[in-house]
Structures are given as C-alpha cells and as structure tokens.
Amino acid sequence: MARQKMGGFNAGSMADIAFLLLIFFLVTTTMDTDSGISRKLPPMPEKDQEKSNDKIKERNVFVVLINKNNQLLVEGEPMDVRLLKDKAKEFIDNPANNPKLPEKKITDIDGKYFGHTYFVSKGVISLQNDRGTSYGTYIQVQNELAAAYNELRNGLAMRTFGEKYKELSESKQKLIKKVFPQRISEAEPKNVGGGK
C-alpha cells in the first residue's frame, strides 16, 4: 500500500519547463563562430624617433597598390586578384635566385633540420590602399597574401617534416616561421580618389 502512495510525481509539466528553457536559449544565442584574419598593427612611432636611413632596396619590396575602383597594381603592372597569390609566392621564395627578386640573407635557424646557413628571403610585401577602396577587396588581397605565405610554409613543412604546417608542434612551427617570416607592411593610405 505504501508503494502506491509514493506513486511517482507527474512528469508531464517537466517537458514544458524544459521547452521554456530551450526556447530561451534559442532566442538569446547565436550559432556563429568567430574567425577571421589576424593581424598585428604597428605601434605608433614615437615622437623623438628618427627616421631610419637604411632604405630597403627596391628588389626586396613587393608593392601592391589598390585604387578606389578596387583595381590592383602589383609591381607596376595591373593584375587580377586571382593571380596575386602565385606572384607573391614567386617573390617570397625566389627559387631561381633571380636578381630582380629579393636578396637572401644567411640565417642560423637550427642545426638539426635546416642547418646553420639557411638562405632566408629578405622580401617585404608593401600594401597600400586608397580610402575609397572597398573593404571586401582589401580582405581579398590580405587573404591572397596570407595564402601565399601559408602555401610556402605548408610546402616546406611537408618537405622537411612530412606533415602539414598546422599539424606541427609549436617549436617546429617556429622554425618554419623563421624561414618564411610573414612580412606585410601597410603604408598610410592615400586619398587620391577624393572619397571621404
């Protein structure tokens, strides 16, 4: 008889409560995961800082200009965004030691994998945009340049470690970063187009 009294409470309303919570979370939350292209801004130049005189040689700079009509000028010639990646890769890597492409500096990376004398490219990518350039184009260009670096790093990682760059341990990633340091410099934007 005691068993019958205990019964088991009515769980019918439990579903209602749970539904209420569920709907609350559905309304107040968003699914989107935040991801994007990470960049580090250069610090503001200090006032008493002198302008450094050691100019970078022209062969070491890869100039990318974007105008207010979202057109690209790469190293003095107009170019489609889709071709930018290969051009940038060729510039950074300079496999044939072309005298027009960047110089290489002998760097001591580490004794084990790369040796003490590894030739690291001195190339710098200079990106300049107009104030009238659309943000979408700017991101596209940034993306292509990042892709160029990532592909080079991936290739090197595959050749030396037999693994993709992203799957390597942090110390190995650091070595690869030393061989292909990401050097993208952004100049102060011009206002040629006359836009706001």
Partner: peptide, 15 residues
Amino acid sequence: LRKCNALKINYSTRM
C-alpha cells in the same frame, strides 16, 4: 586603435 595601443586585431570573415 594604434593610438591607444590595442594592436592585436582580427578582421572577421566568413569561411
């Protein structure tokens, strides 16, 4: 952002 020394930025993008 540079002026107030917040240098780490992320351009949010879609996949």
